[in-house]
Structure formats: C-alpha cells, structure tokens
Computed example of a mutant assay.
Amino acid sequence: MYKKLLFQTNYIKFQQLPLFYRVWMPDKPKGLILLIHGAGEHSGHYSLMGMECLKRNIALIAPDLRGFGHSGGHRCHVHKFQEYLQDLHQFLIHARRQYSGLPVFLCGYSLGGLIVIRYIQHFFYEPTGVILCSPAIGIRYKIPYLLKRFAELTSILVPRLCLEAFESNKTLDKFRFQSRFPDWTAEMMKDPMIFKYTLRWFTELLRNGTKALKEASKFHFPALCLFDLDDPVVDSEKIQKFHETISSSDKANIVFSQGNHQYLNHHRALEQIFQWLSPRLCKKR
C-alpha cells in the first residue's frame, strides 16, 4: 500500500500560507502520530522520536506551526488561537487522504498540547488517542492582574508588538514578579529559528489555557498525559485538574518530579508512550 519511505519534508498550503512538515514513514505503518511542537521550537527537534517511531513501524508527521520554523506567517504570532486549530485540521485532512485506514494519534508538547486540547474541544474529529506532554494549560509564573490586563489591552491596539520573553524575565525579576526561566532556554535561544513572541500571541495563549480547563468535560477521547510536578514552565496543578476532569473512560498519566518540561526527547518517556500506544494500534478507523 505504501512505497518504501523513511524521511521526507514537504509543504502544504492553507489560505495561501505555506506550512512546512516533516514525515518519518516506515514501509508498512501500523499507526500514525501527528505531532505538534511547543513554543520556540520546530519539527526538526523531534528526529529522535521520528527514528524511534520508524523502529516500531509507526508513522510520524510533524508540522512547523505558523510563525515557527520553515512555515509561513508572522514570526511567533497569531491573531487568534483558532488559526492554529484550523492549521491542525488541514494537516489531519491531508494525513487521512494520504494514509487512510491507519489509527491516528494526536500528540502535543507544551503549546502543541494546548493546541491539541483546544482542537478536540472545537472540532468533531475523533482520533484514536491523544498524547499530551506538559500541555500549556497554564504557566507557572504568577503574572500580576494589572500587568495581565495591560498586556490584553495593548495586544488589541498593537497586536504585533513583541514581548521579548527571555529578556523581559530580567525586568520582571526587578519588580519581584517571581519569573524564572529554566537553564535549557539559554541553549534553545542559540537556535536561529527562535523568534520574538507578540503580545497578542501571549494573551491568546493565556486565554485559551483558561478555556481549555473550563471546557475539560468536552474532552472524551483516550488520553495519555505526561507532566512534571516541578515543571519550571507550565502549571502542573492545572494539568492535574484537567486530567482529573476530562470525561474519558480511558485515561492515564505519567508523572515525573525532576523539574523538567520536555519529555518527548527522553528515551524512558518515549518507551512509556509506546507501551501505551501498543494495544491501541490495532484499532482501525
């Protein structure tokens, strides 16, 4: 059914916007994972997961979100969070056309996890299962109410005004706003594909994290959630609450306490993900 293919890159166009994606495709895949990366990343960061999928005859499609990586769009900006959801929908349509009959799993890390959650809460697509890694339902940093309101109002007036998150961290510390970024961000900033975020992007992230938790009961698909109790970036308590509230009868979580945010490039976490996937790969669409 499928020609022999290990790895390729390509683009699809949606509303004249080029969206880049990478594909790891074994000769005879028994399932497909559509992976949505986190903020400040691109699909190229997931080659380890791609190779591990190939070993298990699982296909992996990983797009670059609009505004990130090789995809088009204003850097690190969306006018509405719905734009991410519509892009994900286009990739799902594309994947189902190309690889019909395979069980499809949605996987999202951090920002990607929130996108997957909001997509399921908005659209009627029924995946075989969902994998959420440190979903950005809420951020760990305590943002003062007045600062948050100022950001919301400014994002309406000047939506593309940049919020230099990693540099503003120093400014926030001067005002004792308890903002601290983990050590790995310094290395991540060396990647030439990392750009500045806009205030509109930031306020849309916060708004949709709140909505994701409020609408948790709309989520009723098989789900695996990985998170760290001491995650330095996202709010682990909100992730726990979301997982407890979703109405799925088939849900599991993997909880760490190592102070990490990223697990999709860790061999141990990947093994646990594949163990969860294994009995569900036999389910056909």
Rank of each mutant, 00 (worst) to 15 (best):
T154N: 06
I115Q: 07
R97V: 05
R75I: 00
H89I: 08
I93P: 11
V130D: 04
E83T: 12
P135H: 02
L153Y: 10
Y99V: 01
V78M: 09
R96T: 05
Y84I: 03
L92G: 00
S155V: 00
Y84M: 06
L153S: 10
Q86W: 14
P144F: 06
E83L: 04
S134H: 09
E152Y: 00
Y109K: 11
G72I: 11
G138C: 06
Y99P: 03
V116F: 09
R75T: 05
E152M: 01
Q86P: 09
G112P: 04
F68T: 07
Y84C: 03
H94R: 12
Y119S: 06
S110P: 02
S134D: 01
H77G: 08
Q121S: 03
C133T: 12
S100V: 10
P159C: 04
G101N: 07
P144C: 06
V158K: 13
I137R: 02
P159M: 09
Q86K: 15
R75D: 12
T128R: 02
S100E: 15
P103L: 11
P127Y: 07
G108M: 01
H79Q: 13
F81C: 10
S155C: 01
F124E: 15
Y84N: 08
R97S: 14
C133V: 14
A151G: 05
H79T: 14
E83I: 06
P127C: 05
T128N: 02
E152W: 00
R97M: 14
G112M: 04
